[in-house]
């Protein structure tokens, strides 16, 4: 196709870079709404059971460490900031900063997963993983939780699926890092950075909801 605006950075099916960029953004957002619905199923289950087993959920939630969760939220919010700054660096064509911010994002993302792994290990030790070995002790004053196993099933399902998304995100970041070191991105072509950024922020948003839902049910 002999389109004046065509160059190697614009795929054959698009007329110009702007159409390509808008299509990529809308495409990513369309994918993200599928992700919203994906987590929606878990949030639905959470909502129903929390409403039904209020007492168990209050007691079970107290077992989780608020401050570890809070720390992890901070880590993730910082990673979102570095990601946003990375996209900005890409927009300005600043390759060095882009590489730096992607590395920073990856470090914070990995830190989040590390803390999560520590929390999981602790749950294993305390027999809080659903299954035949599950045994709920609770914290003093809040020992009674007949349906605690449901809470922990949801805890592992929700945080597990979230962690899986983080791992996918780290994979995307690795890919971005390689490409940005090679100098693929420029002022005129930074779509991949932008849409990977959208994904990263989305995973952050999911955690913004999971943290109060799982850790902050009742702390008074």
């Amino acid at each position: 196709m002999s389109d004046a605006a065509h160059n190697s950075l614009v795929a054959h099916q698009f007329d110009d870079a702007r159409q390509q960029q808008e299509a990529a953004t809308v495409g990513m957002w369309t994918f993200l709404i599928t992700e919203i619905m994906f987590f929606g199923g878990l949030i639905l289950a959470y909502m129903i059971y929390r409403n039904q087993f209020a007492e168990s959920f209050h007691a079970a939630s107290r077992v989780l460490d608020v401050w570890v969760g809070c720390f992890n939220t901070c880590v993730l919010l910082v990673s979102s900031l570095t990601m946003a700054l990375g996209v900005r660096a890409a927009q300005m064509g600043d390759r060095k900063k882009l590489v730096l911010f992607i590395i920073a994002t990856m470090i914070f993302g990995a830190a989040f997963l590390g803390v999560k792994a520590y929390e999981y290990a602790e749950k294993f030790e305390h027999h809080l993983v659903p299954g035949p070995t599950f045994h709920f002790h609770g914290v003093p004053g809040h020992e009674h939780a007949p349906n605690a196993e449901i809470f922990f099933s949801l805890y592992f399902a929700m945080t597990g699926v979230h962690a899986l998304h983080m791992i996918v995100g780290l994979g995307l970041m690795t890919w971005l890092l390689r490409k940005s070191i090679k100098g693929t991105f420029s002022k005129d072509y930074y779509n991949p950075v932008e849409i990977c950024g959208l994904y990263w922020h989305f995973v952050d948003i999911v955690w913004i909801f999971l943290y109060p839902l799982l850790y902050l049910i009742d702390r008074s």
Binding site: I33, I43, A84, G197, I205
Partner: peptide
């Protein structure tokens, strides 16, 4: 996060509609 980090505030109207649709359908489900 959606408006500033994800640039929806500076995006086309279509992007805003798509983003909003996700949340509306979540409300249907819940």
């Amino acid at each position: 996060v959606v408006l500033y980090f994800m640039h929806v505030r500076y995006s086309t109207r279509l992007t805003m509609v798509v983003a909003a649709a996700g949340f509306i359908w979540l409300v249907f489900l819940l």
